[in-house]
């Protein structure tokens, strides 16, 4: 019963936040609503016994990514409101609604009609509750937490992927520095007329 209540609260937080993100005129508000959604997702993770991921979700998403968003918003001074009443591209909104509805319908039909097929046999290669590899570290299976399970898999079966992510992050940092550096040459002038012309 408690889990149901937690789930309901989390779902409310998530969906409310999501609506807030897409409906707020001000990007700062969007970012704050995003934080709300991310917290909701973290709660869902706890509900799903993924405690480590819940922590990471809060630290990485709420703590780093959203802060980065806010930084950029503040840095560039683009916190002005976006006029949501105007849609420059004809037919974009109806199409977007249709697509979103179709996506929702498709995913729902997967869950509702063919969802049963997803519940196949339990995993044998990477079981979540029986901690086989942790034995080597001297801990008893009963004391195994999901952090241990994740960690042991991450540094054994998935170590190559893990190292690759390290490289990826390094590249991302270097790329970001390179991109955000101020250009040495004069800034190319680009008038509004050009922009209007470009939109046409």
């Amino acid at each position: 019963m408690a889990e149901t209540i937690v789930f309901a609260v989390a779902a409310l937080l998530i969906l409310g936040g999501a609506l807030g993100v897409i409906l707020s005129r001000n990007p700062v508000h969007s970012a704050l609503f995003l934080v709300q959604t991310l917290f909701g997702v973290a709660i869902t993770f706890i509900d799903l016994d993924a405690h480590f991921l819940a922590a990471v979700q809060v630290i990485v998403y709420a703590g780093a990514i959203v802060i980065l968003f806010l930084f950029v918003i503040m840095l560039l001074g683009v916190d002005q409101a976006e006029n949501l009443d105007i849609e420059p591209i004809a037919g974009q909104r109806p199409i977007a609604l249709i697509i979103a509805a179709a996506t929702l319908a498709g995913l729902m039909s997967v869950v509702l009609s063919v969802g049963d097929k997803l519940t196949g046999a339990d995993s044998v290669t990477g079981p979540l509750d029986a901690v086989i590899r942790v034995d080597a570290l001297g801990a008893s299976p009963e004391s195994a937490t999901d952090v241990r399970v994740l960690g042991s898999h991450l540094f054994t079966d998935y170590v190559f992927a893990f190292e690759i992510t390290a490289v990826l992050l390094t590249i991302a940092v270097v790329g970001a520095v390179l991109l955000a550096r101020r250009p040495s040459g004069p800034i190319e002038s680009f008038s509004e007329d050009d922009a209007v012309e470009a939109v046409r």
Binding site: I89, Q92, I95, A96, I99, A102, T103, G106, L107, V199
Partner: peptide, 17 residues
């Protein structure tokens, strides 16, 4: 327009689904 392209991708994804 990026968003038109996004529509294209989305339509493709829906059709695949």
């Amino acid at each position: 327009l990026v968003r038109t392209y996004a529509v294209g991708i989305a339509i493709g994804a829906v059709l695949l689904m």
